[in-house]
């Protein structure tokens, strides 16, 4: 009887020690992760946790709202919706559309808005970074550029300075 009691006490001790060790490691890793990812709010902590757990999903309703606004050329409002739909800026398709909205808003017949094009470039780079295999194709008949690479090249060319900028034929080009 006494022997059983001693064994049980020993078992309990070991369980507590193992639990403590595992819990300490998990908590310490959690802190390192928080300091590495630098979340700016509790909501962002939750988003980062979803990302780490692989269960992050875009809010489809907000995405569709943004798409509707985008098609009506309300680009800023569309980006607001997409920012809410993809708060982690991790969904390649949403980031592609964000970049496209910067392109369409910044495009001009005589000159392009460099600042908007640069922001578009940042967004399209995010899309390429998070796309599986670094390649992204969006089948949307409303768009004239369907791959992230095409969009990236267009945005890069828009921010570059060259003699072709002085070509008067540029006045007849079309927005994509």
């Amino acid at each position: 009887m006494a022997c059983c009691f001693i064994i049980q006490v020993g078992m309990n001790k070991r369980v507590i020690q193992i639990t403590g060790l595992v819990w300490t490691i998990i908590y310490a890793l959690g802190i390192i992760w928080i300091y590495a990812t630098q979340p700016r709010s509790l909501k962002e902590v939750a988003t980062n946790t979803q990302l780490a757990a692989g269960v992050y999903e875009v809010n489809q309703e907000k995405f569709n709202n943004g798409l509707g606004l985008f098609r009506r050329d309300q680009f800023r409002a569309a980006r607001e919706e997409w920012a809410a739909a993809d708060p982690a800026q991790h969904d390649p398709r949403t980031q592609f559309y964000v970049a496209y909205s910067f392109y369409r808003e910044g495009w001009g017949r005589t000159y392009d808005d460099d600042q908007l094009f640069k922001e578009g470039l940042t967004a399209v780079n995010r899309a390429i970074e998070h796309a599986p295999g670094g390649s992204l194709t969006v089948d949307d008949p409303d768009l004239q550029m369907h791959t992230a690479t095409e969009l990236k090249v267009e945005l890069e060319e828009g921010t570059e300075r060259s003699w072709s900028d002085l070509n008067p034929m540029k006045l007849f080009r079309q927005r994509k």
Binding site: Q17, T19, G20, T24
Partner: peptide, 10 residues
């Protein structure tokens, strides 16, 4: 044991 192995590190 609980204090020493779980509460203190926490």
């Amino acid at each position: 044991q609980l204090l020493h192995f779980i509460v203190l590190p926490t």
